[in-house]
């Protein structure tokens, strides 16, 4: 019996490790290839450069894309819309979720239904009319076009509102009642009493919003036009289109630089990501 169990768990570990290698190999391939010379990249599975042929030159080249620096320019541009986007998303989603989860008001059912409905609606449905609306509002080629919706809890906020509502259901209502007895109004209750408890879910929302924004390619592609507003995702695409197409080492190095902050953030907050996603599907 004991022996059978050991064999069983050995098989399971082998499956898990094999799947893990398939999933992670591509990422190590990026890292390895960014230290290789062009001719050493293809035709081999070895992620390490051949002995004595490793190079850091690719990073020097990748530092410059279209005469602009990758981190001080493109990454900074990304932050210019991403930081306000994340802050607005957290504030507007939390306020909306709080009202819907914990307050009684006329039309509550309608509001909740609409949040779910907008959550289910494909994002694509809104693209063209929003573009035309933003054009008429003079928002084209401005970073604001990428975060204005989040100020008003629209855009991808429905998902975060839903997540926070789920979370708030587990917080005892007595807390709110006690706060009201002590003379807090709704805003004060939310800010002083509920927010501290919400910390883990707020971190999850912030991290997910940040990562999704970083991945967003179609948004900047549609809304940002001028070269001095180019964000990281666009810069990478231009690198692939550009004359450096043959210079794979440079492409790998730039991809590595682009993914590095995301991987760092992921490992720093992996607990929040994993728990957040697992609970978003759960009916608590």
């Amino acid at each position: 019996m004991v022996k059978k169990n050991t064999i069983n768990s050995a098989i399971r570990y082998i499956i898990l490790i094999l799947v893990g290698i398939i999933l992670i190999y591509p990422l190590f391939w990026i890292i390895g290839s960014s230290f290789k010379q062009n001719i050493d990249i293809f035709g081999t599975l070895n992620i390490f450069p051949p002995k004595g042929r490793g190079t850091t030159q690719n990073f020097g080249e990748a530092w410059n894309i279209n005469n602009r620096h990758i981190l001080p320019f493109y990454f900074l541009n990304t932050l210019k819309f991403l930081v306000p986007k994340t802050i607005f998303t957290i504030i507007s989603s939390t306020i909306t979720a709080y009202v819907v989860a914990r307050k009684k008001f006329i039309g509550k059912k309608f509001v909740f239904t609409m949040i779910i409905l907008t959550l289910l609606m494909p994002e694509l449905a809104f693209r063209i009319p929003l573009y035309l609306l933003f054009r008429d509002l003079g928002l084209l080629d401005r970073y604001a076009s990428l975060y204005i919706q989040d100020i008003f809890a629209a855009g991808t906020c429905s998902f975060f509102i839903f997540m926070e509502i789920q979370f708030m259901r587990s917080i005892p209502r007595e807390l709110d009642e006690a706060a009201v007895m002590d003379g807090c109004n709704e805003l004060q209750t939310l800010f002083y009493i509920i927010s501290p408890i919400l910390k883990p879910i707020i971190i999850t929302v912030g991290l997910l919003c940040f990562m999704w924004g970083m991945n967003d390619f179609q948004g900047p592609l549609i809304y940002l036009r001028s070269p001095d507003k180019t964000v990281m995702s666009m810069a990478l695409k231009q690198l692939m289109d550009g004359d450096s197409m043959i210079n794979y080492g440079k492409i790998f190095a730039a991809s590595f630089i682009a993914l590095l902050p995301m991987i760092a953030i992921f490992f720093a907050g992996s607990k929040y990501f994993v728990d957040g996603v697992a609970s978003s599907g759960g009916k608590e």
Partner: peptide, 11 residues
């Protein structure tokens, strides 16, 4: 979970 979180990225 790493591939999912990086998934949509241009890189």
């Amino acid at each position: 979970y790493i591939p999912s979180i990086l998934g949509g990225n241009v890189a």
